[in-house]
Simulated assay, not measured.
Amino acid sequence: MPTEYWRSPETIDRLNRLERPGFAVEFLRRNALYRRDFVRTKRHLARPTVDAEAARAALARRWGLRFRA
């Protein structure tokens, strides 16, 4: 769902029916600070000397996330 439609009645209805994990994803998707942090982390991960697991763990800690394999 594009973020520009987040105030439409259909979107509000959909958000109201979400379980907690789904709502959390939608919240983060719309959060400019999270999106910037995610992009910054993604760029960081592109460097060959970066410990990818540590970078992902740091992102998760900053935002209270849990990644599943």
Score class of each variant (00 low, 15 high):
M1D: 12
P2D: 11
P2E: 03
P2M: 07
T3Y: 01
T3K: 14
T3V: 03
W6R: 02
W6V: 01
S8A: 14
S8T: 12
P9C: 12
I12F: 06
D13M: 13
R14H: 14
N16F: 03
N16H: 11
R17Y: 00
R20P: 07
R20W: 03
P21V: 05
G22I: 10
G22S: 10
G22P: 04
A24V: 06
A24Q: 11
E26D: 08
F27D: 07
F27Q: 11
F27V: 04
R29N: 06
N31G: 00
A32R: 13
A32F: 02
A32I: 13
L33K: 11
L33T: 14
Y34Q: 15
Y34W: 15
R35N: 06
R35C: 12
F38A: 07
F38N: 03
F38W: 03
V39H: 00
V39Q: 00
R40M: 05
R40I: 05
T41A: 10
T41W: 07
A46S: 10
P48V: 02
T49I: 02
D51T: 00
D51G: 00
A54G: 02
R56A: 04
R56F: 02
A58M: 08
L59A: 03
L59T: 15
R61C: 02
R62M: 07
R62F: 04
W63S: 05
L65F: 09
L65G: 07
R66E: 11
R66H: 10
F67I: 14
R68C: 11
R68A: 14
R68L: 13
R68E: 13
A69C: 01
A69S: 10
